[in-house]
Design a protein around this nucleic acid. Sequence first.
RNA 1: GGCCUGUUGGUGAAGGGGUUUAACACGCCACCCUCUCAAGGUGGUAUUCACGGGUUCGAAACCCGUACAGGCUACCA
Length: 548
Amino acid sequence: MQREELANIIFPEVTKTIADYEAMYPERKLEENARVTRFAPSPTGFMHIGHFMPCLIDFCLARQSKGVFYLRNEDTDTSRTVEGAVEYIRSILDAYGLYPDEYEYRDSNETKGSYGPYIQSERKEIYQTFIKHLVREGKAYPCFLTKEEMDAIREGQAKDKRRIGIYGRYAKYRDLPVEEAIEKIKKGEAYTIRLKSTGDFNRKFKFNDLVNGEMEFPENDIDIPIMKSKDGLPTYHFAHLVDDHLMHTTHVVRGQEWISSVPVHFELFKTFGFKMPKYIHIPLILKKDGESVRKISKRLDPEAKMTYYEEKGYPTMAVIEAIMTIINSNYEAWREGHLDAHFTEFEFSPKKMSSSGALFDLDKLDNISKNYISRLKKEEVYEGVLAWSKKYDQEFATILEQYKDYSMAIYNIEREQKKPRKDYTYYSEIKSKTWYMYDEYFQDITYDFGEFKKEDVKEILTTYWKDYYKEEDDQETWFSKIKELCTKLGFATDMKAYKANPENYKGSIVDVTNFIRIALTTLTTTPNLYDIMQILGKERVEKRIENL
RNA sequence: GGCCUGUUGGUGAAGGGGUUUAACACGCCACCCUCUCAAGGUGGUAUUCACGGGUUCGAAACCCGUACAGGCUACCA
C-alpha cells in the first residue's frame, strides 16, 4: 500500500502503535468524580496573571475531588523557549503553594508521576506515532505549500472577502497522488503535515462549555497543520489531543481566547474517537486603556506579570484571595464564614463564573491584602518583611535581623485585638511606615512645628520630660499626665471647648501630643503615641528629645 | 471580511418574568468617634440594568434587530 510507504518514509523511526501507548498509560485509578487537571505553560520566561488564574482553578478542582494536578511543559515552540523558564515557573508554584502531583524538573532531575514525560519536546515519538497512523489512514497528508504561497492565498482570500485558511480548493496538496508526495519528500522538499479535514463549514455542532453553557459552532473544515516542518514537533492543537488523551485529563481550564479553537479540537478528538475532556473557558482579564478595554498585556501592564506582586511584596495568599474573588464572586462571602479554611476548601463552580471579561481591580487587591496582613501574627509579619527585604532591600533586612523583637513589637501595635490596625498593604511599604523607629534611619532630622516657635516647643518638651514622663506609666496615667501638662501650660484638653473658643488657649492637646510625636518621629501621623514611646524606650525618647 | 462571545454603578458583581425602593464587597464622598493616623460607626453614591422594537396584566430578566466592545482568524501557545 502506497500510504503505508509514505508513512514509513516520513516516520522511519516510529515503530510503536497507538495501542502500545494506550497500554503504557492506562486509565487512572481514582475515585469516581476525581478531576485530573493540568497546568501547561510554555516556557517563555515569565508568568502572566492570565496563566495563573487557570492554574489556580486547576489546583482547586483537583484538590477538591481528590484528583490529580500535574505540570506539563509545553515547549513545542523551540524558538520561544527560554533558559531557566521552568525553574521560574516552579518557583512561582512553590511560592503560592500550588504543588503539582506530577511533574518533571529536568535541571534538578526530579520527576514524579507515571504518565510522563511531562515535557512535550521529549514526547516527539509519541506524537509522531499518532500522526503516522493518520497518514497511513489517509487522514493527514504532507503539504508542500511555501510561506510565500500561503501568504498569497491569504491575501487573495482577504481581497475576495472569503474565509482565511487552507481548506477546500486552497488545500492544494490534500489530494496530491501519494507517489508524487513520496517523490517530493525524497527530493528533500520541506513539508508540514496537515489534517485532512472532513468537516463542513455549513454544518453546526453543539458543544458544552462549563462556563458558557451550550454553544454552537460551525464544523472545522480547515486542514490545520498538526506537525511542523522545522523539527517534526506537533502544533499545540495536536499535542493537546495526544497529551490530554494519554494523561487522562478530565478538565481543561484555559482562557476564552481558546474558544475559537474548539471546532479544531472537536474534529481532532472525533477523528481518533477519543473522549473529549470537559472545557472550562474562563473570562479574559482585561485592562482599561483610555476609553476602551483590552486583554491585559505583559508588555503594557506591569500588573499582568506575577513578578509585580512579588516585587511589591503582597503576601502570596492575599494575591490568591483576590484572584479567587474574581473567579467566583461568592468566594468573599464564603471566606467571611471560613476565616481559617484553606482556599481549596471553597467549592469552585464554573457555572458561577462570569463569561465576560473582568478588569482586575488593584484597589480590591490592596484591601484584601491589608485585611490579610492585619490578621497575621506579629511573627508572620516579621517573617514576611524579612523575606521580602532579603530580596529587595538588604540593608533593611540587616536591621530587621538585628532588631528582631523590637521590630515585632512595632508590628504588634494594636494588632492583638478584635479589630486590628490595618496599616500595611504590602511588605515593600513597611519600611516607609516604620523607618523612624530605627536610630539608623533617624539621622539628619529636620523638624516642622508649623506655627509654633521651636523655642516654645523645646520648653514644653523639657517640662514634659522632667516633670511628667515616666516609662512605667500605663496608657491611662500617661494620658492624664499629658492633660495635666496641657492645663498647666494653657493648652485645651477638651477639643469641643477649644473649637468653640480657640482664642482662650495657646493651643490644644493635639498640638502638645504632636510636639512629642514630631520630636520622636518627625511626623504628625503615627500609630498610637503611647505605644511608640513604650517601644522606643526611655533611652531613645530622652535622646530624641535632647537631640531637638 | 469571516466565526465566536459578551454588554447591570467608578470596579468585581447578585439577580434568569411580580417579595428589586437592583444584594454584597471594593472605591469615592459626608458626618460621628478620636491625642494624630489606622481602624471602627452611620449615611450617601445605577429613578434603573447598551439602544430600538416585540411578547406579557407585568421585563434588568424571554424573543428579534441595531450599536458597541472583546477574542480568534500563524508551521505561537
